[in-house]
Design a protein around this nucleic acid. Structure first.
Length: 807
DNA sequence: AGCACGCCGACT
DNA sequence: GTCGGCGTGCTC
């Protein structure tokens, strides 16, 4: 009997959802629950997480190889959360635990190939006789290089590498070796410090002026106690000078950890803010819970421009006052520069920013700072909900209605649910903030599950913009075929003439350009997905929006050879061309995925626009969000209701929130705004309510529909996607799964099984897709039933609890 | 997820 | 007869 570590290996496959037991070797006796370790697994070495220590018979078990951190990575809360996630979302514990580590798989165990060693030197020749000439070449290449990685071998031997390696391995010519690299390490720099008292140095300086470089360095050290490598170099001092001084015992060098922070040194814009009466009232509701350390969730419903961010800042200040930490979540970090700079202005280095474009190193450093409580506030996209803050006081979810809070890959979690669970565990406050709350959130607020707080007045008392709707069917009847309706053209003309700025939003979904042959009607489609390819002006390419494959634009129709092929639909690029024709004098800038590829490209375009370098900003949904540009007085929304036609129960909600947000862009500051909305269904309640910025009207209609059709919040959904490269097999698996579910849910369990039906995009990446939908009022029961089914772990089956769309 | 083992078609 | 396809099963 001895201590055994129960370990979850970091492999994201539901099929190995279990623990493995390992011996704890003598030198690693201090490890315990929550540590990340390196373990042998099959013939590989993997990262593993210790989740339990038990006392049991240990013979025959392999041993932990090494530790990966200086202490436990997971604390008790994180472990509880991970278990909750794996149960709630039906994923493996490994998948859930990976959410809590930066860079998913922190350890990369790299395989190296070496030649085998024998006692008898002739042995190699004997084995070599048995393999093919190319395998012999491979062996010799490895012999020469000592140790070779797989990638290097593949460069030399191409696609047949695998076979050759197998051959050599089989005949014992080569063996595998492992080089384990730990990606996440603190970044260090060497600093130079005095090793003796200042007086000694001064004496030394007076005694000898013979070594000018040494004297310069010593003098510098008298004023600044620590010098980094850059500073030493700037003094014009080389390595040997430093070495000599170290040898003489006057100075020492030391390694210190430095912080990788791409936001460091950016300038911020502090502002003295007087809170409005409404803001004060809302805060008076929130802050007592923070001070009492009492868990409570709030929905902060505040119209655009009502100063929600300031409420967040004050609430976070109260949390920091109470020595606790804050997690602030934003839908997309690239679109949120203003929140970040306002938090930075108020809290300075207490804020760390977390997003997907951080290097693993930067992320690691930020996590360390939070864990050591050197930083108290983390701002980030949804994954920041997993930040290792130790004393959680508040979680803020800004623009809570945004779909980016749902992760669309396994584990398919919704940030709201994680936030509520985590906050409950640590008695923290949650604030969901939005001008257009998700119907479900608002419903829950009305049922007292969240406290509802409202901000109804704009901070700057700006007036609501004047909104005009253009019925595009009417435009067409009048013979106007331009994507820009006459009223919008007029608005733009006036705006540009007045030297004011305009934002044009193109709701591109469903309106991207595709290529069609006018002779035979053939549409160029992706060969791997059931979707048409989209034309991109940049690079003159066709791209599939599902699998990202690109191909060149053909000159003739690939089906009938006709030259009469042309572009259809309205992409941003096409609108840009048309606008350039209509307003040759206007300076137009386009912002979409094509133009914002770079790290800060989005910020750059936005900054330039804010500084008046352009008259018209044209773009996809990203132009609608979060930015205050005071000189924008006109907003045009093209095809405002495009998504209304999607067969999805949330399309009205999406339309309403887009319209409201976009219209809110106009007329901040003291200039009145004007908005032109182009729509094909201007009488739809989502459009009408959006135009009036009337959330109440929208909610009233929408909740009626949801109830009538039995959709959330009146039921919970479970979406099961079956995907397989064989079309018939996909169908069969789905039929069987649906039958199983009907069998389980038929009796006492309330649940309705819909489908299987073919997904709207029937094939993605060569995988056919069939969907089953379960509606239920007892999610727990449905989940427990599914867990019993034998196909749960099949890799063809994806399970989405509370999916955002039914498509 | 890898990777080995194992069972059926086209090649030296 | 062997090489090589990828279906199945295992990893403490």
């Amino acid at each position: 009997m001895s201590l055994i570590a129960q370990i979850i290996v970091n492999i994201p496959a539901r099929s190995i959802n279990k623990m493995f037991s390992y011996q704890i070797p003598e030198p690693l006796g201090n490890v315990g629950v929550g540590w990340r370790v390196l373990v042998p697994f099959g013939n590989r070495r993997l990262e593993g997480f210790i989740v339990e220590i038990i006392d049991a018979e240990s013979s025959g078990l392999k041993s932990i190889i090494d530790i990966l951190d200086e202490g436990p990575w997971f604390d008790q809360h994180m472990l509880t959360m991970a278990r909750w996630i794996s149960e709630h979302y039906l994923c493996s514990l490994a998948e859930a635990m990976r959410l809590f580590i930066p860079g998913k798989s922190g350890v990369k165990s790299k395989v190296l190939y070496r030649t085998a060693q024998w006692d008898d030197p002739n042995q190699a020749e004997a084995y070599l006789g048995k393999v093919s000439p190319s395998a012999r070449l491979l062996y010799e290449s490895i012999l020469q290089q000592g140790a070779v990685s797989r990638t290097q071998l593949e460069k030399q031997f191409g696609p047949q590498t695998a076979k050759l390696v197998q051959q050599c391995l089989r005949h014992q010519l080569i063996r595998l070796d492992y080089a384990t690299s730990q990606v996440m390490r603190p970044k260090l720099k060497t600093v130079i410090e005095l090793a003796v008292p200042a007086e000694t140095v001064e004496a030394r300086l007076q005694a000898s002026a013979r070594y000018p470089a040494q004297c310069r360095l010593l003098t510098a050290l008298l004023t600044k106690s620590q010098l980094g490598p850059d500073e030493v170099r700037n003094l014009g001092i080389g390595h040997d000078t430093v070495k000599r001084l170290v040898a003489s015992g006057l100075v020492t060098t030391r390694q210190i950890q430095i912080r990788r922070d791409s936001y460091a040194g950016r300038r911020h814009c502090p502002a003295d803010i007087v809170l409005t009466t409404e803001q004060k009232k809302v805060l008076a509701d929130i802050i007592p819970y923070i001070n009492k350390k009492q868990g409570q969730s709030f929905l902060l419903h505040g119209i655009t421009g009502s100063g929600k961010t300031q409420v967040y800042i004050e609430a976070v200040a109260a949390v920091r006052q109470a020595q606790r930490q804050a997690i602030v979540l934003v839908p997309e970090i690239a679109l949120t520069g203003q929140i970040i700079s306002r938090f930075k202005a108020r809290f300075g280095d207490d804020v760390v920013v977390m997003h997907s474009k951080l290097s693993v190193g930067e992320r690691f450093d930020s996590w360390q700072r939070l864990r050591r409580q050197q930083a108290g506030i983390v701002i980030g996209a949804r994954s920041a909900i997993f930040s290792p803050v130790v004393r959680l006081g508040i979680i803020i979810i800004d623009e809570e209605h945004e779909f980016t809070y749902k992760q669309e890959e396994s584990p398919r979690y919704h940030t709201h649910q994680i936030a509520l669970a985590r906050a409950a565990l640590e008695d923290a406050v949650v604030i969901f903030g939005s001008a257009t709350p998700a119907v479900e959130t608002y419903y829950h607020a009305l049922r007292q599950e969240h406290k509802l707080l409202t901000l109804t007045a704009r901070v700057d008392n700006a007036l609501l913009p004047e909104v005009t709707v253009v019925d595009m069917r009417e435009e067409l009847r009048l013979g106007r075929r331009s994507v820009l309706s006459l009223p919008l053209q007029e608005l733009l003309t006036q705006t540009v003439a007045r030297r004011e700025q305009a934002v044009i939003l193109l709701n591109r979904r469903g309106y991207a350009t595709f290529i069609l042959c006018r002779e035979c009607g053939h549409v160029i489609r992706c060969s791997h997905c059931a979707a048409s390819l989209v034309y991109h002006h940049a690079g003159n390419l066709l791209r599939c929006h599902y699998c990202q494959v690109t191909q060149n634009v053909p000159n003739v129709c690939p089906k009938c050879g006709s030259h009469y092929i042309r572009y259809f639909g309205t992409g941003t690029q096409k609108v840009e061309e048309e606008m350039a024709k209509l307003f040759p004098a206007a300076r137009i800038v386009r912002m979409d995925q094509d133009t914002t590829g770079g790290k800060m490209a989005h910020d750059t375009i936005m900054d330039d626009f804010a500084r008046g370098k352009y008259d018209i900003l044209l773009g996809t949904q990203m132009v609608a969000k979060g930015h205050d540009v005071k000189n924008v007085t006109a907003v045009g929304i093209l095809s405002a209701d495009a998504v209304l036609n999607l067969p999805d129960f949330r399309s009205a909600e999406r339309t309403f929130s887009l319209l409201t947000q976009a219209a809110g862009r106009a007329g901040r500051g003291n200039k009145p705004g004007r908005v032109v909305v182009q729509a094909y269904n201007p009488e739809h309640y989502a459009v009408l309510a959006g135009l009036r910025q009337d959330y109440g009207l929208f909610y009233q209609e929408e909740i009626k529909n949801r109830q009538e059709l039995n959709y959330p919040p009146f039921c919970r959904l479970v979406k099961i996607i079956v995907q397989d490269k064989n079309e018939r097999k996909t169908r069969q698996t789905a039929e069987r799964a649906a039958a199983d579910l009907r069998g389980l849910l038929g009796g006492s369990h309330p649940g309705e099984v819909i489908g299987p039906f073919t997904a709207p995009v029937a094939k993605i990446n060569d995988l056919y897709r069939v969907i089953i939908l379960v509606k239920t009022t007892n999610l727990r029961a449905v989940r427990d039933s599914i867990r019993k089914l034998d196909w749960l772990n099949a890799k063809e089956i994806l399970i989405d609890i509370d999916p955002l769309t039914t498509m």
